[in-house]
Amino acid sequence: MAAIVRALYEGAFNLFEKPMQMLQYSLGAHRMAWVFLLPNLLIFGLFTYLPILLNVWYAGTSGDRILLGERDWTGAANFATLLDCGSYLDPNTCRRDLFWRAVHNTGWFVVLQVGFMILLSLIAALILNRNIPLKGFFRAVFFYPVLLSPVVVALIWKWILQRNGVLNAGLDWAGMPTVNWLLDPSWAFFWIVFVSIWANMGFYVLILLAGLQSIPSDVYEAAEMDGTPAWRSLLRITLPLLTPTLLVVMVLSLIRAVQAFDEIYVLTGGGPGSATTLLIQYIYDVGFATRPRQFGLAAAASLLMAGVLLVLTLLQLAATRKRAEDG
């Protein structure tokens, strides 16, 4: 069996060898590189770069038509509309108040979600990195939600949090007052932060665990010989040595927090009101959910967001590079 596979495999190579040789002969080794890059470039071009270009074009047009030829070129008008604000701190003074509410919500969401998620992931990773009983079990417990689809996550929590949900049933049983968790703006915001931490932290716990385990154990032994108290060992050794990993985790989670959409959309639909409407949902609402569809505005909003993501991605690249150098 293995021999057959091997024969086929080698046969395939032999099949390509001659034409490839001839191609290289006629193109030269240098241009040959492009032949290998071409498939990737085509796929990226078609499914990534072309849509980005189209998005830029759409952002400069208005109307509810899909064909670019039927749309009116308005230049930067969509951006002007989005950025038309009395004060960026008060969405009510903005022409597109919902966009700015979404920006504010996203800002708070990112700060709270990323902040608490990193803190909790770090604590979890530090605990899981010790020799505690049932370590493998707890690692699985933390990682399991990551494997769930965001929609499933949202439905599970909706089932827990809704008016007649598990949480309220428990509170009721314990004789405590129940709360309509998802209908109160503050609670709803708390829960989208909570649920998205729950759904995502396993991934970061895993990265941090890997980071912790890449710290050589002899450094801790040296610290032990140096009589280092546990808290000082954490502050002066673990955290500094984990910094590159933490940086990567931070930037990754920042990017993902800015892009948060699916589980929140299913859990709260962005409500109550616009209390949990984040940027992506605003873009979706404007571009697709409300009629007539305002593709131009949605495209402009997504470009503004792309700018923020670009900055974050550059940060991530810098962080990864630093990590590679330190490692």
């Binding site: 050589p216 002899d218 450094v219 032994e221 040296a222 610290a223 002066r236 050794i237 910094t243 330190d326």
Partner: peptide, 11 residues
């Protein structure tokens, strides 16, 4: 103690 791998604090 002096370790085989030196075990210096790298940072």
């Amino acid at each position: 103690m002096v370790f085989q791998t030196y075990a210096l604090y790298p940072h």
